[in-house]
Write a protein that binds this DNA or RNA. Structure first.
Lengths: 200, 200
DNA sequence: ATTCATCTGTACTGCGCGGTATAATCCTCC
DNA sequence: GGAGGATTATACCGCGCAGTACAGATGAAT
């Protein structure tokens, strides 16, 4: 609702957001109560409703934040996606991320989207944009490789980019269910091998 | 709680389950109240608590039912997974299923798992088993093809099977977010192409 | 020091939710 | 036809939830 103006206000809002993000990733948005977030973040109700109109707005804000966070975190990698090393780095980063959460959260963005996509159109659209931006980065990289003659001229860049996004999301989901990165690792490796099969 | 014995009882329990399954797929388990299920299915509270101990038991029952339903629906296909036609049929079936839901539900099993995997260990394990059984069917098929010499002897059957499961789940999730089968279709086609690249 | 907007503490409300209690019906079998 | 379990109707309970009211604290600017 109100954007914070002072330093203290920013910190408070931030603490709520970060804490909510963590809880949402573990137990979903519907499975997390506002009180729980407030207790965990050491804030009060008045503070919450000073910065957010209602729970839905919090959810959307957190989701948007996670999206920007992820895209920022991967921005360096995205720029290297015009080389095999870049894709290897992408795979490694994803696997590393999964392990750092001990395979508990899967993909926070994907999870929240899966939970709310049908009931919250805004969340759905934000997620769609997220996938679009991810895909665009991959398309850029593959196109560059194609232009440099590293990929066959008839390579279906668009379809491959969709494919990569799909594999990434699927791998993250399965690692969450299996509590292990094994299948994710195998899948990502095969994905890379498939990309490389388009070498000219 | 109580298993129904009479015909009427079975029908009542069935109606609750089917209705819950539909609602869970659209709005998640936490996003669906018992009252909503009862209203929609035309049953009463006493009937619900006659057949289910609590909401968790309903959720697990519905989830288990969905799993068995899916495996049964695919059992014929699973037996044909020792041929390229079999995999094509699998892809077509998945796409057809997505379209029949107008891309609203994605994968009911995957969605519920994503929502509850971290908070309900039983749901998580059931889902894991589901993926295992799916993978096993794929492994059987690919192994048969390998033995028949249609796949190269060094083919990583296990890894490929994981890969297929991952792609299927990822495709279903993205179709839900994108409200379209386009990316799913492209991904599944590329998956098949990759499998076929292992031809000997 | 006073002012004034920002920020925060606390107590409260109303309601929807999961779950219970009790008793009434239905059906089958003897 | 009536005994007895299976099934169903209805009213209810208590709690946790999202959201509100309002007063109090903070702190920078003048």
């Amino acid at each position: 609702m109100n954007r914070p103006t002072t330093r203290k206000g920013c910190e408070t809002r931030e603490r709520i957001m970060v804490c909510a993000a963590r809880l949402f990733a573990r137990q979903g948005a519907r499975g997390t109560s506002i009180d729980e977030i407030l207790t965990e973040s050491g804030t009060g109700k008045s503070q919450f409703y000073h910065y957010f109109r209602d729970k839905d707005e919090l959810i959307r804000s957190v989701h948007a934040m996670q999206i920007e966070r992820m895209l920022a975190l991967h921005s360096v990698i995205f720029e290297q996606l015009d080389s095999w090393e870049g894709f290897e780095l992408l795979n490694d980063t994803v696997l590393h991320l999964l392990e750092s959460q001990r395979f508990q959260d899967g993909c926070p963005i994907g999870s929240l989207a899966s939970e709310l996509a049908t009931s919250d159109e805004l969340v759905r659209m934000d997620t769609e944009q997220y996938f679009d931006r991810k895909k665009a980065a991959i398309v850029r990289g593959l196109t560059a490789m194609k232009l440099r003659g590293e990929l066959r001229p008839d390579t279906d860049v668009q379809g491959l980019a969709d494919f990569v996004v799909v594999v990434l999301q699927g791998a993250k989901l399965l690692s969450k269910v299996r509590r292990s990165a094994d299948c994710a690792q195998a899948s990502l490796r095969h994905m890379l091998l498939y990309l490389q099969s388009h070498r000219s």
